[in-house]
Amino acid sequence: MKPKPWTMKEIKYLKENYKHMRISDLADKLGRTYGSIHSQRQKMGLTKEYDKREYALYKNDDLLHIGSMEELAKFRGVRKETIQYYATPAYRRRIEKRNNPGSGITLIRLDDDIA
């Protein structure tokens, strides 16, 4: 099946709203899939502030690394999208189905305002 072409109205909406709306909400509003929104956002070079935030990457209870998503991706030898996937509900469901559910990777955002 050939993907539905993006209209100028959809592109404008994406540009105006990508910073403050989740991809899933944009997908619902535009009647598109999560993957379609994510792909178009990348093609347009639209990035969110989370790209600059720091995260802690754990395996089981062991801290593996702290850094931005790009730094964590470099550390793990994977793409940044893989690191982002670790924070999704889909990844958590996948891990829960394993024989050893506690064996997955966990990504935690580190907030500046934690005292």
Rank of each mutant, 00 (worst) to 15 (best):
M1T: 07
P3K: 12
P3A: 12
W6F: 11
T7L: 11
T7S: 15
T7M: 07
M8S: 14
M8E: 14
E10Y: 07
E10W: 08
I11Q: 12
Y13E: 13
Y13N: 12
Y13I: 15
Y13S: 12
L14N: 01
L14E: 02
K15E: 09
E16N: 13
E16R: 14
E16A: 12
E16W: 04
Y18G: 06
K19S: 01
K19L: 03
K19R: 06
H20Q: 05
M21D: 01
M21E: 01
R22A: 05
I23C: 12
S24W: 10
D25E: 12
D25G: 14
L26T: 01
D28L: 09
K29L: 05
K29H: 08
L30P: 00
L30I: 02
L30N: 02
L30V: 08
G31F: 09
T33D: 13
G35A: 08
G35C: 10
S36P: 01
S36Y: 05
S36W: 03
I37L: 09
S39D: 13
S39I: 13
Q40T: 13
R41D: 00
R41S: 05
R41C: 02
Q42M: 13
K43S: 07
E49N: 10
E49A: 11
E49Q: 15
Y50D: 06
D51R: 09
K52W: 10
K52Y: 12
E54A: 08
E54M: 11
Y55K: 04
Y55L: 02
Y55A: 01
A56C: 02
A56F: 01
A56Q: 07
Y58K: 12
Y58R: 11
K59D: 07
N60C: 10
D61W: 02
D61M: 06
D62S: 14
D62K: 15
L63N: 07
I66A: 03
I66M: 10
G67R: 03
G67H: 05
G67C: 04
S68E: 01
E70F: 03
E71R: 10
K74V: 02
K74N: 15
K74E: 05
R76V: 08
G77L: 01
G77R: 03
G77P: 00
G77A: 06
V78N: 08
K80F: 00
E81D: 06
E81Q: 10
E81W: 04
E81V: 04
E81H: 05
T82H: 09
T82A: 14
I83F: 03
Q84R: 15
Y85T: 07
Y85Q: 09
Y85A: 11
Y85M: 12
Y85E: 04
T88I: 04
T88K: 09
T88L: 09
P89Y: 14
P89L: 14
A90C: 07
A90L: 11
R92K: 11
R92Q: 09
R94N: 06
R94Q: 14
I95Q: 13
E96M: 10
R98C: 15
R98P: 04
N100A: 12
N100T: 13
P101A: 08
G102P: 02
S103M: 08
S103V: 02
S103P: 01
I105S: 05
T106P: 01
L107R: 01
L107S: 00
L107E: 04
I108C: 07
I108K: 07
R109E: 03
L110T: 03
L110P: 04
D113G: 13
I114A: 15
